[in-house]
Design a protein around this nucleic acid. Structure first.
Lengths: 256, 256
DNA sequence: CGTGGAGTTGAGTAACTTCAAGGATCGTGG
DNA sequence: CCACGATCCTTGAAGTTACTCAACTCCACG
């Protein structure tokens, strides 16, 4: 833990949003979450927030803790890790700029269900539950945005649920890498690079496979020139081939 | 399809809510979703809704359709089935009284992601997207309730995601049955009965297993007196034993 | 330059699925 | 009221996937 990413941290409006400082709407208006918002509303929302820096490898809070804040990623990226009582782990999602964190727990008054770990130097916004609720009551736009945001989580979760229960490991890994490239890929000569440190273990936790299986699969793909791997490092070279694998009707099984 | 459940349909305030009629708040105030709501707000919400009857086996809409309404289950129960392009199926959730259906699609303006099939004679409320949005804008209470409701979906989805990626089939089936008994169980002499018709296939679709594995597992449990099975029929006799199985640290694997 | 995290690879095996076939139960129509 | 078709369920046997166990390599960092 706490290793420094070798990749340049993604700087996003760091000028306007220094840790500890209070903000104005300009610092957040560019986030997809706030697209279409009135400038005045953005101001109100930003003014109620505090900015906090989260270095790579650090957590925002621990799974099981009693919720005391709502968070939003301003820049950087996190992985939300959920641990089962028996010690099993899952990566449930990878929130990045504009994604809310902890809101579900705050509104349903349940313990935080996962631990968000920064996989890149990150900045987050924090609100007290009371302040955020006030904002929602005063700005119905905000409620709708929260609902939209939660809707995408639900669809993502259902999509992954469907994958993990109907598809074989190889295809799940293919899907996961395509999604990573899409959500966190930076174009690079001859491919798309995943812009943060990710281990085989992480991919395993995202797909419900062991790191061994992931390693074997990636090795095979590397031999075929589809990807280019390395220590905590991944470049997608042939997206078309990977997409073919992810959709391969290798499926002799209808309606599992 | 279209078979009639042998079980008595659960009648819930049918007096107040006849199909086709318009409603007042009294018809919906008892739903957990509206707990804590002002009577006047309930009136407003109810008056904007229409009631519709959905017989067992019928669907509300088809997966892939363009959303044109928001729905809420007033009484009865549905199963939301998602079909993959390759023909794989998953049951993503089992909405019952007070659960919203289709709202995610309406607010994110994406096609309905699953097909809700009534597994019991049911009544639903319907709103036009415009009407529902209006209600939310005028009654922030409603927005908060929607958010809370969506929060529980997310937590459920994540819990199942975790299960299906870290646990073995037997334990997943145990969990599924415990959940069914909790959500849809009616006490009966010597156990708890699942109050709607459910097939081994359905349980398979909920747990990511084949109906064969489900059948074998249930047969074994029946021999041990833990459950009592039958055609589309299930009685949980020994919840304690099942809970033991669902938590069994048969797990030699830490951190998969 | 040694230590530990990350990755690779092989061999053996358990857990499920697939394939296959037969039996039970329900509703329907003659 | 019984026969028949359609589901649903059960169970065996064979096959495969992906996990477990284990050993070894490769870096990066101190």
């Amino acid at each position: 833990m706490n290793r420094k990413s070798r990749l340049p941290s993604t700087p996003t409006s760091d000028e306007a949003a220094a840790p500890g400082r209070f903000l104005d709407g300009a610092a957040i208006r560019h986030l997809p979450f706030f697209s279409g918002f009135d400038a005045k509303v953005c101001d109100d929302i930003a003014r109620a927030a505090r900015v906090k820096r989260v270095p790579t490898g650090e957590t925002i809070f621990a799974q099981g803790a009693v919720p005391d804040s709502v968070f939003m990623v301003l820049s950087g990226r996190f992985k939300a890790v959920q641990v089962t009582p028996e010690g099993g782990e899952v990566v449930v999602r990878l929130p990045s700029a504009g994604d809310l964190i902890g809101h579900v727990s705050v509104f349903s008054d349940t313990p935080y269900p996962a631990t968000p770990v920064a996989v890149t130097e990150s900045l987050i916004l924090t609100w007290t539950p009371a302040a955020f609720t006030d904002l929602m009551l005063n700005h119905p736009q905000l409620s709708l945005a929260v609902i939209r945001n939660m809707g995408t989580y639900i669809q993502e979760a259902h999509a992954r649920l469907r994958e993990v229960s109907t598809e074989k490991v190889e295809r799940r890994i293919a899907h996961a890498i395509l999604r990573l490239a899409e959500q966190a890929g930076t174009p690079v000569k001859g491919g798309v690079e995943i812009s943060f440190a990710i281990t085989r273990q992480d991919i395993g936790l995202m797909t419900g496979a062991t790191l061994h299986t992931v390693s074997r699969t990636l090795s095979a793909w590397e031999r075929q020139g589809i990807i280019d791997g390395g220590r905590q490092h991944l470049v997608l070279r042939d997206a078309k081939a990977l997409r073919r694998i992810s959709e391969a009707s290798t499926a002799p099984s209808r309606s599992r």
